[in-house]
């Protein structure tokens, strides 16, 4: 569990497949609609390429590929969440970004052994909110650049 989740924390909720995921709002710079992506050859398979983000060339990662979830066609609801992590900016392609909510630190539970289809190593924990289950993504691991 990261220290970022202190007591009350605002998180951005996004959708991948049927699961809902969350990342702290402090890490998110913006949420963009999908635009033309320039493919960068000879990079890891989850790196879709780069886009022009207001004059900044920003790499884009397909989170589905990264998390080993089956890929789908991009559609109207597909969003790119631009996150600032360490000293770089990366865009994450998600199925949809629907919500900003407050979560309580005390509600965060360690990840169960099996959560949906996502490998546990990318997960910090889970939060139950009413009937929703939010998976808190570990950005550090999800963004780790290892060539596949």
């Amino acid at each position: 569990m990261t220290e970022l989740f202190e007591k009350e924390e605002k998180v951005i909720v996004f959708q991948l497949s049927d699961e809902e995921y969350a990342i702290p709002v402090s890490k998110v710079r913006s949420i963009e609609k999908l635009q033309h992506i320039t493919r960068v050859p000879r990079t890891a398979n989850f790196v879709k390429g780069v886009v022009n983000l207001r004059g900044l060339v920003t790499p884009i990662i397909d989170l589905r590929t990264r998390l080993n979830i089956e890929e789908v066609e991009y559609n109207e609801s597909t969003r790119v969440i631009i996150v600032t992590h360490r000293d770089y900016e990366v865009g994450l392609i998600v199925d949809a970004a629907n919500d900003v909510i407050d979560i309580n630190l005390s509600n965060v539970e360690p990840p169960p052994d099996v959560v949906g289809v996502v490998e546990v190593e990318y997960i910090d924990g889970v939060v139950k909110l009413d009937k929703r289950l939010l998976i808190i993504l570990n950005l550090d691991k999800a963004l780790k650049y290892d060539k596949k």
């Binding site: 033309h36 320039t38 960068v40 050859p41 000879r42 990079t43 790196v47 390429g49 780069v50 886009v51 022009n52 004059g55 900044l56 060339v57 920003t58 790499p59 000293d87 770089y88 900016e89 990366v90 963004l143 650049y145």
Partner: peptide, 27 residues
């Protein structure tokens, strides 16, 4: 001339990127 950013540090045979008139990125 623009760099590909810190995330993609060394890409084979690509020295950087640029933004073309139509807003797209070219390597």
């Amino acid at each position: 001339l623009k760099s590909l950013g810190d995330y993609l540090q060394t890409v084979f045979a690509i020295s950087g990127a640029t933004i073309l008139g139509d807003g797209q990125v070219a390597l």
